[in-house]
Design a protein around this nucleic acid. Structure first.
Lengths: 312, 312
DNA sequence: ACATGTTGATGCCGTTTCGGCAACGGCTAT
DNA sequence: ATAGCCGTTGCCGAAACGGCATCAACATGT
């Protein structure tokens, strides 16, 4: 089922690999063939698509425009293929997800497992990245669904849903704060704190608030792994911060205590966005999973905000 | 700039013309070439795309799926082309509009004229149809922008905006009703009425209400042309019904009087929708006109509802 | 019933396009 | 300087494409 001009596919491969010869290797064709197709494309468009650097190729402005078109074409071709396949009852394909770390602990594995239980022929590819990298991967067509902290998203992405979760402090059961119902940031800062590094979005959520308090905090630990921070907190090393999403209630509830965070009398929210390339119609199996994802995250949002209501 | 496989273009032409030989004529190629490309496509998809009738070809289910994909590809190619062109300062292209008759009297000509004043290189194609035909033409990719009475629209269309206009009675200056500020349907039915035929959407708006009143109306005239109905009303033949959109205030206000219609104490609304194919990104010049259209219709909605406020 | 016109499909053949191989010049890093 | 990678180009065989003439199937008009 390859009814698109080879030029399209070659261009796509060159864009991804950043090199004609590398693209040729991926495509199992001679590099000369790829080179010629690119030259032909440039001639037809009437403008160079790549800048030839010594080390490879970089897209020009026109090249980026074509890349957008080619991505639309190839992604829609995927959808068409899946539509035809689902017509004959075969529901199979691969859902590609890019998301931030908070999801890996329970949300995503639960969802994927349950979805695979129902649709065994649907496979998954998941890649954990920072929030901005998630959006970038989505823009580049390297993922179908993206889950990230809701920043300003580029116009070529569509925010399917926006769920807000309450940020909280994570302490060990024996920690002095563990008996409280809620904590303030100031209370936490009186103890050793496990800070997120700037690569994590929690850093950008909390840093402004911490700066406001302008207290000299206890000597703290910094980390860039949600998982590591959680484990450190469980061992009583200090106070970590995250949403409850990252905590598996089954196993770790015994060791860890989650305390919703208050700051200046109001909760600290972490907004989670679900994103999709805007200029695209998803294959049926992807759309189906996406809806389950939105529903599940909505459910968790509801449950957690019910468990820790904000009393004004 | 033809970097898509000929099969795509041939398929598209065959779908539109409904015949291989007709498509070949349009494409300036031999019919055998078209026939072969279609056969090749069917072999690659693994399923027939057309049903061969004696009189031509009809799409199968799979064919319709491919048609959707091909339409997405070709429309996005258009957008890419216009993006590249606008990069070198040249803003040109054709905006294709399908709309119902009410717009032709002043809204559309005003807008097009003013737009052409600013962007001389943008041309327009407009086709007047019934509401459901407008949506159908849009679905088939025969128009870029559709304006129609807001019915239930198919999922492959996106409702860009929804504006409601008050339905009113149109009578000549000398008509006994002409001095009133508003009229009720019952009052109108006491006089000769110019009815819309079922092909016009006004029919479907008013018929249920008229049926409720269940009075035997005066012998009436029926017509399927908004324009004709308006002219008849101007000549005192009877009462016509339409939104004020269809009345050019400059020339005809002298002859015609517009009386907002009340029924059972509430206004009768005519909902106008602006539609676009959902799976599509519009070229810049089309998007620009679309936004002007939405703004202008919103402006008219505001003005008219201010001129004839509903007093509950 | 017959002739006529139209439909899509097919065999044949010249032309165009495509892809593989080898070689070239430009560049970088060692 | 050497080695390694890069993209491009000339040459040539293979594959794809398009045009022409022809065929069978069907609809239409007489």
């Amino acid at each position: 089922m390859r009814f698109h001009s080879p030029a399209i596919q070659y261009f796509h491969a060159v864009r991804r690999t950043g090199s004609i010869r590398a693209a040729a290797r991926v495509l199992n064709v001679a590099s000369s063939a790829v080179s010629r197709q690119i030259l032909k494309l440039e001639q037809e468009v009437g403008s160079p698509l790549f800048e030839r650097n010594a080390r490879g190729l970089t897209l020009t402005t026109v090249g980026e425009m074509l890349a957008r078109h080619v991505m639309n074409v190839l992604q829609d071709l995927d959808r068409f293929r899946s539509d035809v396949a689902s017509l004959s009852g075969a529901w199979h394909g691969t859902v590609s997800i890019a998301c931030i770390e908070s999801l890996t602990e329970s949300v995503l594995p639960d969802l994927i497992a349950s979805h695979r239980g129902r649709a065994r022929r649907v496979s998954f590819t998941t890649e954990v990245k920072g929030s901005s990298d998630v959006l970038e991967a989505l823009s580049r067509g390297e993922a179908d669904i993206g889950i990230a902290i809701a920043l300003k998203h580029p116009p070529d992405l569509r925010q399917v849903a926006l769920k807000r979760f309450r940020l909280g402090a994570l302490v060990a059961r024996e920690h002095p704060l563990a008996r409280r119902k809620t904590v303030t940031l100031a209370q936490c800062l009186a103890f050793p704190v496990i800070h997120a590094l700037p690569e994590l979005s929690i850093y950008h959520l909390l840093q402004p608030l911490i700066a406001q308090l302008s207290e000299t905090p206890e000597p703290a630990i910094q980390a860039n792994s949600i998982d590591l921070m959680r484990e450190l907190a469980a061992r009583g090393v200090g106070v970590a911060f995250q949403t409850q999403l990252g905590i598996n209630r089954l196993s770790r509830d015994a060791q860890l205590v989650f305390l919703p965070l208050d700051n200046a009398g109001s909760p600290v929210w972490s907004d989670l966005g679900i994103y999709v390339r805007a200029e695209r119609t998803l294959p049926a199996y992807t759309e189906s999973f996406l809806q389950e994802l939105v529903r599940e995250l909505g459910e968790r949002e509801r449950r957690e905000n019910a468990a820790y209501p904000f009393t004004a």
